[in-house]
């Protein structure tokens, strides 16, 4: 599933991840947060399409694949 267009969204809670998957629909897979992004063992959403802002309620940050790394492209404002 990993390719250059892939995005990962991390969340503050499991429930927020479930809500995101429900709203996003097809093309969203929930998996453990990549170790390179966090030492937490929470759940992240992996998507390959665009992600509109209103879907990101409860999200912590969004990353885009950049070579072998994940580059942050959005972060929740405090």
């Amino acid at each position: 599933m990993e390719n250059r267009d892939q995005k990962v969204i991390t969340f503050h809670s499991q429930y927020a991840a479930f809500l995101f998957r429900k709203r996003y629909g097809e093309g969203c897979v929930l998996r453990p947060v990549p170790r390179s992004l966090s030492s937490s063992c929470g759940t992240a959403a992996f998507v390959e399409g665009e992600v509109s802002g209103e879907l990101l309620e409860g999200a912590e940050a969004m990353y885009e694949k950049d070579g072998d790394l994940w580059r942050m492209i959005w972060k929740e404002q405090d």
């Binding site: 998996r31 453990p32 170790r35 063992c41 759940t43």
Partner: peptide, 19 residues
């Protein structure tokens, strides 16, 4: 991130067998 509970939790919640 070894966790004795997290592995079973992830199987229940997201069908992931990593942990």
């Amino acid at each position: 991130r070894l966790c004795m509970a997290g592995g079973i939790r992830d199987i229940f919640l997201i069908r992931d067998f990593t942990l």
